[in-house]
């Protein structure tokens, strides 16, 4: 049994030896944000927060989350409403297919947590390990800057 806190709720889950945090979150705990993109630490689609820090969940075992706090995209919501950052993404219509966005938002939130007023190049540098195939990059950057401005 692995016990940890998921988006504010304590969870217990039985997972096979070596199961990734990504797979356990997605397929056993019905968390929806994090996505499987590559399983190789190359795309960032699976980014979540563990104890407030950005973690690539395809490269992390579920067991290593034991006793810690895991936050996924839905965990950023505030009282059921989109968070400031999520709202900025909606306002900027910063999506095409949207598959990369959970990873983008989780990565951007980790940036804003330590650098609340980033420059455009801070944002690009922070997101450089996150791939988007639809070409939504500039809208994503605008959304992060907008959230920072409105904070």
């Amino acid at each position: 049994m692995i016990n940890f806190n998921l988006n504010g709720t304590d969870v217990s889950v039985e997972a096979p030896e070596g199961a990734t945090l990504l797979s356990v979150l997605t397929n056993q705990l019905d968390a929806n944000g994090q996505k499987f993109g590559c399983g190789k630490a190359q795309c960032g689609a699976c980014a979540v927060h563990v104890d407030g820090e950005r973690v690539i969940s395809c490269q992390t075992t579920a067991a290593s989350a034991a006793g810690r706090s895991v936050t996924t995209l839905e965990g950023l919501r505030e009282n059921g409403k989109p968070s400031k950052l999520q709202q900025a993404f909606i306002d900027e219509q910063a999506a095409q297919c949207g598959y990369c966005l959970s990873g983008m938002i989780m990565t951007a939130q980790a940036l804003l947590d330590i650098n609340p007023k980033p420059t455009e190049s801070d944002v690009r540098a922070a997101l450089n390990g996150n791939l988007c195939r639809c070409g939504t990059h500039n809208r994503i950057v605008r959304a992060v800057l907008r959230a920072a401005e409105e904070a």
Partner: peptide, 8 residues
């Protein structure tokens, strides 16, 4: 878009 941004 809202569902995709908030993890529905």
């Amino acid at each position: 878009i809202p569902a995709k941004m908030t993890g529905e």
